[in-house]
Design a protein around this nucleic acid. Structure first.
Lengths: 139, 139
DNA sequence: CGGCATCCCTATTGATACTG
DNA sequence: CAGTATCAATAGGGATGCCG
């Protein structure tokens, strides 16, 4: 922690075009700009938050209740990221008590639709999946 | 709002809340069986591995080259999970040198299609997303 | 070639407490 | 209500070395 014998935390080994806007739009390339977004959107809580918001606008606490198991911190953090990436719109109503409403943007809605499709596939095949899990052993 | 664990079209009374044979297929419930699967499939490397395998069978090293930036360890681990969950089929050919080929199962193909749809949405909107990111500041 | 085992570091996450 | 701050636990992930 206190000593750094090496050359320091290089995020830039060799050469990298980290500052370029939308280099190639290929997720398979390690520094494609869409990778971080993909991760945010497909993250543990990102998926669920987007899927939930597909049902309509939600306020913070209600969303937290809907996405069972998420902590305040994670919901807050997830929503910030999704807002930053243009998936979610955040609307504050100056009232007492304060209200904040979250809605999907157009882009967010498209993404959420895909994610919902994914979820539905998994849910409707959950039996097969569980069977596969139990059957799994390396021969 | 009702979080109703009961009522509704019944399926199998008696096999209710045991340790987790596909209880309710609702991802929003914190211990739904599909959540871990969703996470595996939507994980950082899971998405990319599945998307890559959509292009056809891959051998370990080739897949590693395709999914740029993944380490041996992570690829190995990811593939094991995907195989366990019935998304990927692993075929060993006893030869010298040994060859192992990975292919998508039917289920894996469906999942991969959804993920590919997601990726395409993100890639084609990457400019808007990057703009959103730069425009983002807290007021 | 296609892995698994080990070490070790860092990012993510979850409780808890506190604020506007 | 809608968060933020802080801290501790854990999971993710890279580097290396070894084996069938």
């Amino acid at each position: 922690m206190s000593t750094q014998p090496d050359s320091g935390p290089d995020q830039d080994p060799g050469l990298a075009f980290t500052n370029d806007p939308a280099l190639e739009a290929d997720v398979f390339a390690r520094n494609c700009s869409s990778r971080p977004v993909l991760q945010a959107v497909a993250s543990r809580w990102g998926v669920l938050a987007l899927a939930a918001l597909r049902e309509g606008p939600y306020r913070f606490s209600a969303l937290r209740r809907r996405v069972d198991g998420i902590s305040e911190r994670m919901l807050s953090q997830t929503l910030q990221t999704l807002e930053r990436d243009g998936m979610v719109h955040r609307e504050v109503q100056q009232s007492i008590p304060p209200q904040v409403e979250y809605t999907l943007t157009d882009l967010g809605a498209k993404v959420a639709d895909q994610l919902m499709g994914l979820i539905e596939i998994l849910e409707s095949n959950i039996d097969a999946i569980l069977t596969a899990q139990n059957t799994y052993h390396r021969d």
